[in-house]
């Protein structure tokens, strides 16, 4: 599935990266070590964390897309780092729970 197909239902804003980014599956979590341990490559990662370590963890695990929830935004330096690492970042006003529900409904498993 591409990000393009998900942006609408998440009311999301594309902070950096391409709407053509592919995601296969999803992982939700705010604990970085948990994501490092369990997330699969090329998933969409739902988190409320906006610290620059989010980008480090995402690129380390080859996570293609990060979805920041509750309308939080990354600072410009972190966005620049995400862009450099090829990580797509979205921001949604929804909570992590709501976002996960919407994504589940689209068939992203």
């Amino acid at each position: 599935m591409t990000i393009k197909d998900l942006i609408g239902c998440l009311q999301a804003e594309l902070l950096t990266g391409s709407a053509d980014t592919q995601v296969c599956g999803c992982y939700a979590g705010d604990l970085l070590s948990d994501v490092l341990a369990s997330a699969k490559p090329d998933v969409l990662w739902i988190t409320i964390q906006v610290h620059r370590n989010v980008v480090s963890v995402a690129s380390m695990k080859d996570i293609s897309t990060v979805l920041i929830t509750r309308g939080r935004k990354l600072d410009s330096q972190t966005i620049a780092e995400a862009e450099q690492s090829g990580v797509t970042v979205l921001s949604t006003p929804l909570s992590s729970y709501e976002a996960a529900g919407k994504l589940w409904e689209t068939g992203l498993r």
Binding site: S33, L36, Q49, H51
Partner: peptide
């Protein structure tokens, strides 16, 4: 607060 301290570092 920054997402560390999951207690998974060493096991990971």
């Amino acid at each position: 607060q920054l997402g560390f301290g999951a207690g998974m570092g060493l096991p990971n």
